[in-house]
Design a protein around this nucleic acid. Sequence first.
DNA 1: TCAAATCCTATCCAATAGGTAGGAACTGAG
DNA 2: CTCAGTTCCTACCTATTGGATAGGATTTGA
Lengths: 157, 157
Amino acid sequence: MLSQRGRYALKALLHLGRSGGEPRGVTAIAASEQIPRKYLEAIMSELRRAELVESTRGWSGGYRLAKPADLITFGEIIRLTDGPLALLPCASRNFYKRCEDCVDEAACALRRVMASVRNQVAEILDRTTLADAIAGSPASRALLDAEPVDPGSADTA
Amino acid sequence: MLSQRGRYALKALLHLGRSGGEPRGVTAIAASEQIPRKYLEAIMSELRRAELVESTRGWSGGYRLAKPADLITFGEIIRLTDGPLALLPCASRNFYKRCEDCVDEAACALRRVMASVRNQVAEILDRTTLADAIAGSPASRALLDAEPVDPGSADTA
DNA sequence: TCAAATCCTATCCAATAGGTAGGAACTGAG
DNA sequence: CTCAGTTCCTACCTATTGGATAGGATTTGA
C-alpha cells in the first residue's frame, strides 16, 4: 500500500497539473484536496528538493510543476515518496539489495515471481504520466481498462 | 514492499511444497531457510489458522501443505500476511475501503491508475501457484519472462 | 511596512514490524 | 510410562516509522 504521504503527494501534483502553470499556494491545495496544511507543506518541500515542482515565495507565490505534466510519471513520484515498487528488495531495479539469507532456490523461485510483478507494475507506473491521469486517457488504455474496479456503486467516473 | 513476515511465510510454504507430503518441523524449516525459529513458529501458526497448512504434533510431527501446491496461490498468501495487493484501499477488491477525503476527480484519476496496477498484480499473483514457482514454469511464462531482472551479477538462476 | 507565502527545525504520539521468552499440551518411541 | 521432540499459546520487548503539529525565520510583492 502507498503511504498517506505518497497519496497526498500524488493528489497535490495532480492538482498542480490541473492548474495550468499558475502557482498554487499550499493553503489552497490543502483546502481543496483535504490535506492537513502543515503536513502538505513538508511534502511540497520534498517535491521541490526532488525537482518535481518549483516554488515562488512571498506575495502570490506557491508551487507549480517543474516540467510539463506529460513528463512526470507516477513511477518517479511513488519511488520518491514510498521507495521501491517491487515487493522484495532483490526484485527491485532502482533499489536493488541482495537478500542476506538467500542461499537456496526457494529465494530465487520467489524472486522470479516478484520480478515479474515488479516489471508489470513499473510498466504501468513508468508509462503513465500526470497528464494521462488528468486527461483520463492513460498511455496504455488497454491495460487500464482491462478489468474495471467496481467497489459497489461509489464512483464518480 | 512485502513484510519480512510475508517473505518468511512464502519461503516456508515453498519449502513445504518441495518436501512432498512429508511433515517438516519448524526447526528444520527455520534452519534451512535461515528464519528465526521462534518467529517462524508464530508464522506457521497463522498459516495453520488460515488453513494453508496442516500440523501434527508430538513425535515426528511438523507442518505440511493443506492442499496440493498447485492450488495455493501467491495472492492468497500475500493477502494473508501483508493485506491488500492494491496501492490504495479504494483500488482494492478484497480489502476495499473508501477514501474519506475523496471529493473531486483528483482522487478518482488516482484510483483509475491504481486500479489498473492492482489488476495486473492480482493477475500474476492469483494465477501463480507454489507449484509454478517451484517448477520454475509459472502459469504465464510470457509475463514472467517479459523483462528479466538483472541485479549486477548476483544471481543463481 | 505588512500580509502572505515558502522554508526550516524540532518535537510528539500511536501503531507496527520484528523478534524473544517461557511454558503448556500433545504424541509416538523407548 | 516416561521422555524427548513437537506444536501451541500468551505475553512482552524494542526500534522504527507514519502521520502530523508547533513555532518561527525568511522572502516578496502589494
